[in-house]
Design a protein around this nucleic acid. Structure first.
Length: 263
DNA sequence: AATCCTAGCAACCGCTCTGAC
DNA sequence: CGTCAGAGCGGTTGCTAGGAT
């Protein structure tokens, strides 16, 4: 018989998330928490599979995420951890607050690998490129610390300047201590221009009222909003989450008619 | 100005592993 | 022990911005 698929792909949406979808998912999770990803999209009114919702939340919507470029120190730490842990990105990510495994993996593949090659190191083994005797399976878990593989005093030529390391794009919005604790310290906001999100969603999300959350979003970063660039016609500044929505205990969901989940 | 190319990144796929039941 | 669901992973795709031509 086999396992049921995590989602019925028929009728489910794929591709980039819209502002409204993000809004719905974030609003639902902040109000109700996470219990079972499979029914989250149904209860939140999303035409997405649970796995997609989980990924979106973990990689993009979590209030504690730290956005922006990696600092030199972070890159060095990633290299150090990778030399010890290999491609176990979640383990590596656990050493960073506000960084996701996907984010680190992408950064590794696009930036750090090149950086290491410039430094004359094999990204897979963390050993000097010309040391072919050490070129082993990149997926091997146990890798010696790169520091031990470089001869003491050895000078690595062709060190590229680190001007390609983006630091100024880190535009994490730091909220004041007076702001709503539930939403976030260190909350990332996605947009730049002012907009009345309440009116944006009022036809579809009448249950969502203006909220204290929106007051948190006065200063906005645009740099991380690439997902929404196609929707520039809808300039957005506020995530209008309703933190006053009554908490819905998950126990209640268990008692709901199964037909609800077939919506 | 238009087109092409490339880098970066969000998102997805398919799979394994793990723990709960 | 089998099933299920979530977590995690490696690999890949597709879109976009920006630089090169």
């Amino acid at each position: 018989m086999g396992r049921k698929p995590c989602c019925d792909k028929i009728g489910l949406k794929r591709g980039p998330w819209t502002i409204e979808e993000d809004h719905r998912l974030m609003n639902f999770i902040l109000n109700n928490g996470i219990h079972c990803w499979r029914i989250v999209p149904k209860l939140a009114g999303l035409l997405r599979c649970g796995k997609s919702c989980r990924l979106r939340w973990i990689n993009y919507l979590r209030p504690d995420l730290k956005r922006g470029g990696f600092t030199d120190a972070e890159e060095d730490r990633i290299m150090e951890l990778h030399s010890q842990l290999g491609n176990r990105w979640s383990k590596i990510a656990s050493h960073f607050s506000g960084r996701t495994d996907n984010e680190i993996k992408n950064h590794w593949n696009t930036k750090i690998k090149k950086k290491m090659k410039h430094l004359g190191l094999d990204p897979a083994t963390h050993k000097p490129m010309n040391d072919i005797t050490h070129q082993t399976d990149p997926n091997q878990d146990k890798k010696p610390n790169m520091c031990s593989t470089i001869n003491e005093g050895e000078e690595i030529k062709d060190q590229t300047p680190k001007d390609d390391v983006i630091t100024e794009t880190t535009k994490t919005l730091m909220l004041s201590d007076n702001d709503e604790e539930l939403v976030a310290k260190n909350c990332k906001i996605l947009c730049a221009e002012e907009v009345d999100l309440e009116s944006l969603f009022e036809t579809q999300c009448n249950e969502i009222s203006s909220s204290s959350f929106s007051s948190l979003c006065s200063n906005i970063s645009r740099s991380e909003s690439s997902s929404y660039l196609a929707e520039d016609s809808i300039s957005l500044e506020q995530w209008d989450l309703d933190m006053t929505d009554p908490f819905v205990p998950w126990d209640l969901f268990a008692n709901l008619d199964d037909n609800l989940f077939l919506l």
